[in-house]
């Protein structure tokens, strides 16, 4: 449906905005490497089914694109010259291990099929995605404010989540028996994390 497509497109746009920013400004200052590495982990654990689930060309292609773009971003941040010298590890200080560990436990404990390692990995990726933005938001807070393109990037990520939430309501109403507790709760948590950022983003755009 169109709402879900809009979500995917804003998600994809967020990658390109970030890549554009780090290529154009030659700087990754203010970007959280931890968040970007968490996204690589999210996509690699969620899209394991790329090898056997061929729902549509769109889905398979988007999975490859999401993995490739997230890996590319981490690569530029770690290896890019001069980007790697502009990274601020002292500001990127969110204790990310405390995000991963509970998500692993939750993924093992609460999933759609307790006998399937794939379902555990999949549930883990859903939980981790919900909180993966936290190191980035923490960094923005420590910095005081984010560069324009960085804030557009975070905004697009939040927008993607809002589109998906609306898409779930739509699917619930139009598809018989469509009901997904794990993704809905995680998605709602994820959206809530952006509220404060959204508020400040809109406020600063109004000032401009």
């Amino acid at each position: 449906n169109a709402i879900r497509l809009a979500g995917d497109m804003s998600h994809m746009a967020s990658f390109f905005v970030l890549l554009f920013k780090i290529n154009k400004s030659k700087s990754v200052a203010g970007i959280s490497l931890k968040t970007q590495e968490l996204y690589v982990l999210v996509f690699c654990t969620r899209y394991v089914d790329i090898f056997w689930n061929h729902l549509s060309l769109y889905n398979s292609l988007m999975k490859v694109i999401f993995i490739a773009l997230s890996v590319m971003i981490v690569y530029v941040m770690r290896r890019g010259v001069p980007q790697r010298s502009t990274y601020n590890p002292e500001l990127d200080s969110f204790p990310h291990h405390w995000l991963v560990l509970p998500c692993v436990l939750l993924g093992v404990a609460i999933n759609q099929d307790p006998t399937s390692p794939f379902e555990m990995a999949w549930a883990f990726s859903i939980y981790l995605e919900a909180v993966a933005i936290m190191p980035q938001l923490h960094m923005v807070q420590k910095h005081g404010e984010a560069e324009n393109l960085t804030s557009h990037y975070i905004f697009l990520l939040g927008l993607y989540r809002v589109f998906y939430l609306v898409n779930w309501v739509y699917r619930y109403m139009t598809e018989d028996g469509y009901w997904q507790a794990i993704v809905w709760v995680s998605g709602a948590v994820q959206a809530v994390l952006y509220l404060d950022f959204f508020y400040n983003y809109v406020k600063s755009k109004q000032k401009d």
Binding site: R4, S56, Q180
Partner: peptide, 10 residues
């Protein structure tokens, strides 16, 4: 709950 129903999403 339809098992795997959201696997069609990203």
């Amino acid at each position: 709950e339809k098992i795997g129903a959201t696997k069609d999403e990203l």
